[in-house]
Design a protein around this nucleic acid. Structure first.
Lengths: 209, 209
DNA sequence: ACCTGAACACCGTTCAAGT
DNA sequence: ACCTGAACACCGTTCAAGT
């Protein structure tokens, strides 16, 4: 069980008045814009503040430092991603294995692909953080959903569900990321996605009841 | 075919005298040390120079900027990795598919794992770079070796070798990376590696002659 | 309760001066 | 041919003063 994020990375205060909620939202939006434009190299606190229409000081009221800002942005993104995966798992409880695999790959792939530029920017930005806590929290939350789904499959029995789950999710998430990094073409991506599904299915066929 | 790395990232000059070759080597070594100690956040030119026992100015004689230094370090690492993969492919030319898969996974996994801390530090450092050129050059070089190997398999016929190759390497490289990011335990890693092999074999079984 | 922006310390980078 | 290190611009962060 992962603890809370390192104190230095936690938001300084939670916005209470609606004015400040707007401010924080503007800061997040500005951060994405700046990241998309110039990547982490050009992500300066001044630039983010300027784009968000606030002063640097204001930014520092909500985030103790630049890293915390990027950290919070990624936490937000991973939270949304986890929610989508959880929904998919709920929808496919008790379904046959083949459908589960397809649904999982589809959800993850779509989530990462629909805003490829944002995905890429965040992949890069999160690398610079002490992201262990972030990754662990995400992994644990999503693993819970996917293992439950797998365990509920109507046409399979697993001697070791966590193990099968680990293989499945590591391969899927890793492959998607690597595809991004290689910058595969749309055609290559389509073929790859199909082959990934084939592989996962072939693996899971071992557990067919 | 990828062009040369962006001019801004290329080494400024190649060391000609042995004195300067030693200097460059010391700078590389210092960079790794500093990266291992504090990650990219604490990688300052002053610290690297100090640790290498030279002045900042000297560092800037060989690398036009900090990014170029990190770039060169990763280029070096990827070059060595590619060479190892090429060797494995050469050794397994004409072998049965199953052995190829096992050898490829073994080589890659071992290369990444034997110095896990360095691997982790480099994974993170390369994310901050304009690394497209670097990644493409590596991918192209390694793809050439692996596709050739696959095509030579004594017990398989591929309708589309590049496609099978893409599936294979993306899944393998991606999985290894993701395993690193999740920080899997040694036992989990062992199981995962076995399952990854199973998956790849099951996929390739489709092409058995 | 929230915002501002000048001020400070530190880092990346340069270049005139050295061997 | 190679090295030095003070100097400069810029960025992260703070805090006294404001609404």
């Amino acid at each position: 069980m992962p603890g809370p994020p390192p104190t230095a990375l936690q938001p300084r205060k939670t916005p209470r008045q609606s004015r400040s909620r707007v401010t924080v939202e503007a800061i997040f939006e500005a951060t994405i814009q700046v990241l998309l434009r110039g990547g982490m190299n050009e992500l300066t606190t001044t630039r983010v503040a300027e784009r968000a229409g606030v002063s640097v000081g204001t930014m520092y009221q909500y985030f103790p430092n630049k890293q915390a800002l990027v950290y919070a942005l990624n936490a937000r993104y991973l939270d949304a991603l986890a929610a989508r995966i959880e929904a998919t798992c709920r929808e496919h409880a008790g379904a046959p294995l083949g459908q589960m695999v397809e649904a999982l790959i589809n959800t993850y792939w779509t989530a990462k692909t629909e805003r490829a530029d944002v995905t890429r920017a965040l992949y890069r930005s999160v690398a610079e953080l002490n992201n262990d806590v972030l990754i662990h929290a995400f992994a644990e939350r999503v693993d819970r959903a996917t293992t439950e789904m797998l365990a509920s499959a109507c046409d399979a029995v697993f001697p070791d569900v966590p193990r099968a789950n680990l293989a499945l999710v590591t391969v899927i998430y890793g492959t998607v990321r690597n595809a991004f990094e290689r910058g595969v073409s749309d055609q290559e991506a389509a073929a790859l996605r199909q082959d990934l599904t084939t592989m996962c299915r072939a693996y899971l066929a071992n557990f067919r009841a």
